[in-house]
């Protein structure tokens, strides 16, 4: 029986956006299990990204608790949250968030230099099929390639969980599939618990479990009997 890596209970989050208040999450109870491939779907504004940010230690809930294994993240100091992200979480963002002034290899080194047991940057980049573009700057790479650098950067630390926020959102279909294949491969080969946020419904076919968020709460949860490989996804 796989153990949960992340557990949330009653998580709420209220934002002050300019002059208005937005309740992004309304009491979410949720678990992410070891080696699981989870897809979080929902319309824009349903609270996916907020949940993801809270799971990744990038943000704190207004109320409720979040546990990473036995560690209560909601009680962790900023310093402890940083350690948590540094050692356990790999992030992939919609807009890659690469350092424009660093090459592909250096962007990955940025992470490998500060973690305990990283894989070499070259190896991580080979894993995403970029072994021939090591010394290219982000501006010299296509969007798909940039996102693959971001994936390499996220997995190079051998994280326990991989959090992907709209990883294909800024990509064309072809590049999107390549990125999904890489994520799928990491999940399979490294056994990393993976959560992918998307509003792109066909992607949920890849998941072992699909959670749907609606207006800040979990609306529906289903298990896929058979997972479709990334290469067969169409949108």
């Amino acid at each position: 029986m796989p153990e949960p890596v992340l557990t949330t209970r009653g998580v709420t989050r209220i934002y002050e956006m300019g002059e208005i208040q937005v309740q992004a999450l309304r009491g979410v109870d949720f678990e992410l299990m070891e080696s699981e491939f989870l897809v979080l779907v929902g319309a824009s504004g349903s609270g996916k990204s907020t949940l993801m940010n809270i799971l990744g230690g990038l943000d704190r809930p207004t109320d409720g608790t979040v546990h990473f294994r036995d560690q209560e993240l909601t009680r962790a100091s900023d310093r402890e949250l940083t350690e948590y992200r540094r050692n356990h979480v790999g992030f992939i963002f919609q807009f890659y968030n690469l350092m424009p002034s660093l090459t592909a290899r250096e962007n990955v080194s940025l992470v490998t230099e500060i973690t305990r047991d990283p894989m070499p940057a070259d190896e991580a980049l080979a894993l995403v099929g970029l072994e021939h573009r090591l010394d290219h700057f982000p501006s010299q790479l296509s969007g798909g390639e940039q996102q693959r650098v971001a994936v390499a950067r996220a997995i190079a630390k051998r994280p326990e969980l991989l959090l992907c926020d709209e990883p294909t959102g800024a990509l064309d279909y072809r590049s999107g599939v390549v990125v999904l294949e890489v994520i799928e491969r990491v999940n399979r080969e490294l056994g990393t618990a993976t959560a992918v946020i998307t509003h792109n419904a066909p992607i949920s076919a890849m998941a072992s479990r699909v959670v749907t968020l609606h207006d800040g709460a979990i609306d529906e949860e289903r298990h896929n009997e058979a997972r479709a490989p990334a290469s067969e996804i169409r949108w």
Binding site: R79, R85, N97, L98, T115
Partner: peptide, 13 residues
């Protein structure tokens, strides 16, 4: 945003 990304990657303040 670069500061934020560095923090997300696990760099301390």
């Amino acid at each position: 945003t670069q500061v934020a990304a560095l923090k997300a990657l696990g760099y301390h303040d």
